[in-house]
């Protein structure tokens, strides 16, 4: 269930991009993977503990996000939907295989961190990294939510999501908002990646594991709805764990997709989506 918070954090980033500019980032998982490798690098090259590298990785990914927007996404904003799908899909293929070339296919692990070990909580053993990760993910998601709802920049972001033209007329620099959305979204996976790197093995395809579920969370919560993505992320974490517990673990992802299909057929716009 704890993993649900991580799904929520990853999904929130995805939904932010979609909400603001109607683009699905198919390379989201690969950005997560990059964040994990950055964390790994800092750990092996300079001995920086993953816990401390969280803000650095988040900042790096923020920068990567804005650059990605300016170099790539900006050019397809008015393009047909297929071009938008393929540009991020191409990015996915590019990044995933770049990682294979740079870091090879091997599984890597960060051995000892400040938060290794496990804890006993109400008679159940929980790995400390898992616990810290979920708490960290929950806090970050909360912070992002607070930022969007309570700061002027956050409002501007929401206004841009609501209606780009009107927001532009109101004096909001929509171009900057788009870049900000990408930056924030990638910072989210930056945090998620740094946290996950404490216990999850790191390999070029690692992103797919998390992000396929995140797409479902985003669609389930309703594209563009931050609240929806957050709740759906937790629900999915719950379903996965319960599914693995009550049924066979290997079918747990199937269950997630099944539930998603069930929900969207009844409510095509997702749980919290607007039409």
């Amino acid at each position: 269930m704890l993993i649900g918070f991580v799904f929520a954090l990853i999904s929130v980033g995805l939904t932010l991009i979609f909400g603001v500019m109607d683009i699905v980032n198919f390379a989201h998982g690969e950005h997560l993977m990059l964040a994990m490798y950055f964390t790994y690098w800092m750990y092996t090259l300079w001995g920086v503990d993953p816990v401390f590298s969280i803000p650095v990785v988040a900042a790096l990914l923020f920068i990567l996000g804005t650059i990605t927007y300016r170099l790539v996404i900006k050019h397809v904003l008015d393009a047909p939907m297929l071009a938008q799908i393929f540009v991020t899909f191409g990015m996915m293929v590019f990044l995933r295989n770049l990682a294979q070339v740079v870091w090879s296919e091997d599984y890597r692990r960060i051995g000892d961190t400040l938060i290794s070990g496990r804890l006993e909580l109400f008679g159940i053993f929980i790995g400390t990294p898992q616990l810290v990760t979920s708490i960290g993910a929950a806090i970050t998601t909360g912070l992002l939510y607070w930022f969007i709802k309570n700061t002027r920049t956050g409002w501007a972001l929401e206004a841009t999501a609501e209606n780009k033209e009107v927001a532009g007329l109101m004096g909001i620099d929509t171009e900057r908002m788009f870049a900000l959305a990408w930056g924030l979204a990638l910072a989210c996976v930056g945090v998620a990646g740094a946290l996950l790197a404490t216990f999850n093995p790191i390999f070029p395809e690692v992103g797919a594991v998390f992000v396929l579920v995140a797409y479902v969370a985003v669609a389930l919560g309703g594209f563009g709805s931050v609240t929806g993505a957050f709740i759906a992320g937790i629900v999915i974490g719950l379903v996965q764990v319960m599914g693995g517990f009550l049924w066979e673990p290997r079918f747990k992802t199937m269950l997630v997709y099944g539930i998603y299909l069930g929900v969207v057929f009844i409510r095509p716009q997702g749980l919290f989506g607007r039409r």
């Binding site: 393929f86 540009v87 191409g90 996915m92 295989n97």
Partner: peptide, 12 residues
């Protein structure tokens, strides 16, 4: 890697 890059360029 090259393939991915080409896909991006074509879409843009």
């Amino acid at each position: 890697v090259v393939y991915g890059l080409l896909i991006m360029l074509i879409s843009i």
